[in-house]
Simulated scan of single mutants.
Amino acid sequence: MPKAIHSIWWDDNLGPSVGRSYPETDPLTSEEALIIFMGHGVNREAEVGYSKLPRGLTISYMKPPNCIAVLLDDGENTTTIERNLLRLVKYIDFNSDRWDNELQRAFELLHELIDETSGAELLTNPEVKKLVEDMSDKRVPAITPRHVLRASVRYPKAQDYFGNDDDEIVRILKDLEDEGILESRTYGRRVECRQCGESDLSIELHCPHCDSNDLHKVYTLFCPKCSDQFHAILVDDIAEITCLSCKQPVKVKELAIIDVEPLCNKCGTASNDPKIVFRCASCGKHLRSPDLLAGTGLAYYPKW
């Protein structure tokens, strides 16, 4: 269990300031507070930070200008503490005028949350119990994700059990994995159109200069008769081509292709780095980064 909880805050003029601690026996120093803030990035942009202090590892939550840091005991499961710290912060009144009591209450509530989301206590949650039973009976074979944005996933089936708080659903699934009830596996290698849900793609090459898709391929060819290289456009249904160096006809099957470069018929730009456009083959939507870079998610399966 966590050993202590600390409150600190950041002042743009004064830097880090040390607030209260609970228990009060070993408060933070200003130097330690600075290390904790550095764990949130140079501009304090990260919501959750990890810091190694001489007294031990801390996990902290940043809600500018306030920061709550939890000191871990040796051997603690850091992911469990992080998940429950994120659960805890919505219960903290950062504007409280009785901060001593607020911090003590937060420390005690954090311990309660850890107890409730681990071990046998986790299975006393009726929603968790129902999900485990349905997965055990194969009514729900797996909890699979759907990517909503680049860094956001949603588990539609799990919403039937746990409501619409996507972040809390992810935390519950990870709780169940920590307890050996579920097992996570990679999922979602296919690109999925966020408009219609289909995965069939069409790929277009566009000119990087004018964005036209009216392109031809310009080939760099090796002539077997004169051993020279020349450029040519190979259209369909031809059997031979004339070498631009030796002027002799060469059968296309004898040509060695050295390089290929798209040529724009609209603006005349030749480029070996054309713009690649992905479209949904079903609805025609232009698939952009959130569609293509959502990444592989995790699906959860019963571990039995």
Rank of each mutant, 00 (worst) to 15 (best):
M1C: 10
P2C: 06
A4P: 08
I5Y: 02
I5H: 04
I5L: 08
I8W: 02
D11P: 01
N13L: 09
V18D: 04
R20M: 08
E24R: 13
T25V: 15
T29H: 07
E31S: 11
A33C: 06
A33G: 04
L34Q: 03
I36S: 01
F37I: 10
H40E: 01
V42Y: 06
V42K: 12
N43Y: 11
S51F: 10
G56P: 02
G56I: 03
L57M: 05
T58Y: 06
T58W: 07
I59S: 00
S60E: 05
M62A: 04
P64S: 04
I68A: 06
V70Q: 00
V70S: 00
L71A: 06
L71T: 07
L72D: 00
D74H: 13
T79E: 02
T80P: 00
L85P: 00
K90G: 00
Y91T: 10
N95I: 03
D97L: 12
L103F: 14
L103D: 11
Q104M: 12
Q104V: 05
E108P: 01
I114H: 01
D115M: 07
D115A: 07
D115F: 08
E121S: 15
L123M: 15
E127A: 15
E127I: 12
V128K: 09
K129H: 15
K130A: 14
K130N: 12
K130T: 15
L131W: 10
V132F: 11
D137M: 15
V140I: 15
V140K: 08
P141L: 12
R146N: 10
R146P: 01
R150G: 10
A151S: 13
P156A: 10
K157P: 00
D160S: 15
D160K: 14
Y161H: 05
D166M: 04
I169G: 02
D175M: 02
E179L: 04
I181S: 07
R185D: 14
G188C: 08
G188I: 10
V191E: 14
E192K: 05
R194W: 12
R194M: 14
Q195I: 05
C196H: 08
E198W: 07
E198I: 07
S199M: 09
S199W: 08
L201T: 09
S202W: 05
E204V: 15
L205M: 14
C207R: 02
C207P: 01
H209L: 12
C210W: 02
C210P: 01
S212N: 02
N213E: 08
N213D: 12
H216C: 08
T220N: 08
F222D: 13
D228R: 11
F230R: 13
H231N: 06
I233T: 09
L234D: 08
V235F: 00
D237Y: 03
E240S: 14
T242A: 05
K247T: 07
Q248S: 14
V250E: 12
E254I: 01
L255I: 03
P262M: 06
L263A: 08
K266M: 06
C267T: 03
G268Q: 02
G268F: 08
N272F: 05
V277N: 03
C280E: 09
A281K: 03
K285I: 01
R288K: 10
P290T: 14
L292W: 13
L292N: 12
L293P: 03
L293S: 14
L293Y: 14
A294C: 10
A299Q: 04
W304D: 12
